[in-house]
Simulated assay, not measured.
Amino acid sequence: MQDVVLTTPRLKLRPMVEGDIPAHFALFADPEVARYWSREPWTDMTQAEESIRAIIAAREDGSEVRFGIELLSSGELIGNVGLHHFFGQNRRCEIGYALVSKVWNQGYATEALRAAIQHGFDALDLNRIEADIDPRNIGSGRVLEKLGFRKEGYMPERWLVFGEFADTVNYGLLRRYWEA
């Protein structure tokens, strides 16, 4: 699969590389981020190394399109957004994203997701993009709804995180919602 770089007014979305391992580790070692990522915070750099290797392999085999989110102003990697779990026959996939907590509430998630979603509908010819979030993650819900996603379902106790069960809210975005 060809490497794609997307640019927004403040961000560059680009393929993740081995040099991203330290920033990737810092992202998922942050308990505030991991809280809503359905897994415990990372505690060892090898977790980031394995994750980056998997991201690169998925890009190469075409099973995932994951972008590192980089600030244009500094080149700092502040998170990632990925389109994954593609169902080609149905032209749909899932979207996932995480940003370092120090940049929350500055519009970066909305900006990055808008670019990734547009890429999904235009370049990948998707008809539907799905997301699932912890309903307590109010900020993420706002981002999805601002981008046109609609709540479609609720799954109680879907994940076990930090020793407690967490619920999931399912969201969907159709191409026709996006284009409206």
Rank of each mutant, 00 (worst) to 15 (best):
A131R: 08
G88T: 03
R150C: 10
V33Y: 12
V81I: 01
A48K: 07
L99G: 11
E164Y: 01
A34Y: 05
L113F: 06
L99M: 11
R176Q: 06
S38P: 00
E50W: 00
R128Q: 08
A34T: 07
W104M: 10
F121R: 02
L83I: 03
N170V: 11
N170E: 07
G139L: 06
D125E: 07
D44M: 14
D30K: 04
F149D: 12
N127Q: 09
I117R: 06
S140Q: 08
E64P: 04
Q118V: 03
A123K: 03
E50M: 10
I78Q: 12
D122M: 03
A26H: 09
L11T: 04
D167F: 12
D44H: 14
N105D: 10
E130A: 06
M45Y: 01
V33H: 13
L99N: 08
N170T: 10
T168A: 15
A115W: 11
M155I: 12
V161G: 07
D122K: 04
E164S: 12
I78C: 12
L144Y: 02
D167L: 12
N90F: 13
V100A: 13
E145M: 15
D122E: 14
L174V: 00
Y171S: 02
N137Y: 14
D122I: 03
G163S: 04
R142V: 09
H84S: 08
L77V: 06
L11S: 05
A58H: 02
A109L: 08
